[in-house]
């Protein structure tokens, strides 16, 4: 088991390394270079004339005259050893400052979303599978189709529309006005949680739809297994039997796709955040892409992906704990 964890951990590091190269390549993709954008941003409208030599000196300041791998090493070295993600020129401060609280809010949103997804998907899907061909089962199928077809951000827009027109309610944002800039307190946490519910449900929408289908079909497979028949032939009460045998195994695919769920949620996060006006990383990511503020964008992309890799690792370990066959295979 420890061996397995160690081996997986090495895999995590290798993946993170490859991901960081890809992220850095994306940061370098936009036309023109950082110095030009920096100069343009800083001095446009100020009346200061920017010459080619000014840009050149900025370039040297930021080390942009060095080759790709040197720049990459500088960047990744700063992150790994000093936890420094570079400069955010659009905000004229360090990336760390810009990101600040938002990373925490993003994780809070992610976990509330994941919990909502599993709390909804697992019991409903198990029930639908056991009561196959019931109304509950058919409506589950319809919902899971819709969940894949109706993108989360459209659902967010619809909810906003319903909120505004029918209840005169603005469901956007993560804090009420009085807590917006207040220091952290119990009241603020409570306020945050109550504001997290709608965004979390919106984000959980398609992940839930997918998990409903997965759990339901695994459960149907498991219900037909001979081991279930054998347990029934031992005289086990039905509900105990369902929980101990098929339901227990129907959880496995959920655990094994946890990283995938996080990936999906992070993928949809920016646009939902934009629509619902959530001050977290995804929305900042869009803004920094539009500003071509690539150090911010790179930092966020790396954080999101890093977290997904981490969740993949956690899900591998959990799966091995849950399933002796996986343990045996991975040794």
């Amino acid at each position: 088991m420890l061996m397995l964890a160690a081996r997986r951990l090495i895999g995590v590091i290798v993946t993170l390394f490859l991901v960081s190269i890809m992220v850095f390549a994306i940061m370098e993709l936009p036309p023109g270079d950082y110095a030009e954008r920096y100069a343009f941003r800083k001095f446009s409208g100020t009346g200061v004339q920017v010459t080619e030599s000014d840009i050149e000196s900025i370039r040297i300041d930021f080390g942009l005259d060095q080759p790709f791998y040197d720049r990459y090493l500088n960047w990744i070295g700063g992150i790994v050893f000093e936890f420094d993600f570079g400069e955010a020129f659009a905000y004229e401060t360090s990336v760390n400052n810009v990101i600040g609280d938002r990373a925490f809010l993003t994780l809070a949103l992610l976990f509330v979303t994941l919990i909502a997804t599993y709390l909804l998907a697992i019991p409903i899907a198990i029930y639908a599978a056991v009561r196959r061909h019931s109304i509950a089962d058919y409506s589950l199928t319809v919902v899971s189709y819709l969940g894949l077809a109706l993108p989360n951000f459209m659902l967010a827009l619809i909810l906003l529309y319903i909120g505004v027109t029918m209840f005169d309610l603005d469901i956007g944002g993560l804090f009420s006005e009085e807590y917006e800039d207040a220091p952290w307190s119990l009241g603020k946490v409570w306020d945050l949680l109550s504001h997290l519910i709608v965004p979390a449900l919106v984000l959980a929408w398609s992940a839930t739809a997918l998990q409903l289908q997965t759990v339901r079909s695994t459960m149907l497979d498991e219900l037909n297994k001979l081991s279930v028949m054998a347990a029934r032939a031992r005289g086990l009460p039905e509900w105990k039997l369902l929980l101990k045998y098929p339901a227990r195994l129907a959880i496995n695919p959920v655990v094994s796709t946890m990283g995938f769920d996080v990936n999906r949620i992070f993928s949809e996060l920016p646009i939902v955040a934009l629509v619902l006006g959530l001050p977290e990383l995804g929305q900042l990511l869009i803004q920094s892409y539009l500003d071509l503020d690539m150090y911010v964008a790179g930092a966020i992309l790396l954080m999101l992906t890093g977290f997904i890799v981490l969740m993949n690792f956690v899900s591998d370990i959990l799966l091995a704990l849950l399933d002796p066959r996986v343990r045996a295979r991975m040794g």
């Binding site: 990936n263 869009i286 892409y289």
Partner: peptide
């Protein structure tokens, strides 16, 4: 596959 798809698209 590990990089979230929409943020990746957005970056590109």
């Amino acid at each position: 596959r590990v990089i979230p798809i929409i943020p990746l698209y957005m970056g590109l």
